[in-house]
C-alpha cells in the first residue's frame, strides 16, 4: 500500500502539480489536491461544502486537463477554496467531488490564482510498483 501524495514541482513562472496514488482515480484526486494547494494551505480549509464535477474526454491526458480545469473553474466562479477531493472513473468519464468553503482571504491567506492547467508535461502513468502518477503544469 503506497501513501497518496499531492506534490508541487517547479516550472519557471508556473507550477507543476503531481498526484500519486494507488489507482488512476486516486492519482487524479491527488493532482487536484496539489493544484488546490497552490492557492491555499489545505489544512486551513474547512470541508463545509461539497461540489460535484463530471468530465468526459477522449483519453486520459485530456481527462486530467479537463478535470484540473474544471476544479479551477469551480474555484473561480464559486469563490471557493478546496482542501480534499475524491474521484471515481468509469472509462473516460470522471466523477469528482471537491470539499471546501468560501474563500476568506484573512484566514486562508491565498497565494495565487491558477489561470488554467496546460498541456505541458501532461502525464498519466503507472509505475512498475503499481503506483499511478498524474501530473501537468498549471499557469498561474
Amino acid at each position: 500500500m503506497h501513501k497518496e501524495q499531492a506534490v508541487q514541482f517547479p516550472h519557471g513562472a508556473d507550477i507543476g502539480v503531481r498526484g500519486i496514488g494507488n489507482s488512476r482515480a486516486a492519482a487524479f484526486a491527488q493532482a487536484a489536491a496539489a493544484l488546490a494547494a497552490t492557492v491555499v494551505e489545505p489544512a486551513t480549509v474547512c470541508p463545509a461544502e461539497e461540489v460535484a464535477i463530471t468530465c468526459t474526454a477522449p483519453d486520459d491526458r485530456f481527462l486530467l486537463y479537463d478535470w484540473l480545469n474544471a476544479v479551477i473553474y469551480e474555484m473561480a466562479v464559486r469563490r471557493m477554496v478546496f482542501g480534499r477531493f475524491e474521484v471515481s472513473l468509469e472509462g473516460q468519464t470522471l466523477h469528482g467531488r471537491a470539499w471546501g468553503e468560501a474563500i476568506d482571504p484573512s484566514r486562508h491567506l491565498p497565494a495565487i490564482e491558477p489561470k488554467g492547467a496546460t498541456m505541458t508535461g501532461l502525464r498519466i502513468e503507472q509505475a512498475q510498483d503499481g503506483t499511478w502518477i498524474a501530473e501537468c503544469v498549471v499557469d498561474v
Partner: peptide
C-alpha cells in the same frame, strides 16, 4: 483564461483531422 482553456483543448483534439502535428501539445 477560460477562452484559452476552451480553444487549447478544441485545437488539440482537432489537429489530427486538420492534418497538423506539433512537437508539444501546448
Amino acid at each position: 483564461h477560460q477562452v484559452a482553456t476552451d480553444y487549447q483543448r478544441e485545437m488539440a483534439i482537432a489537429m489530427p483531422q486538420l492534418g497538423i502535428t506539433v512537437p508539444d501539445l501546448d
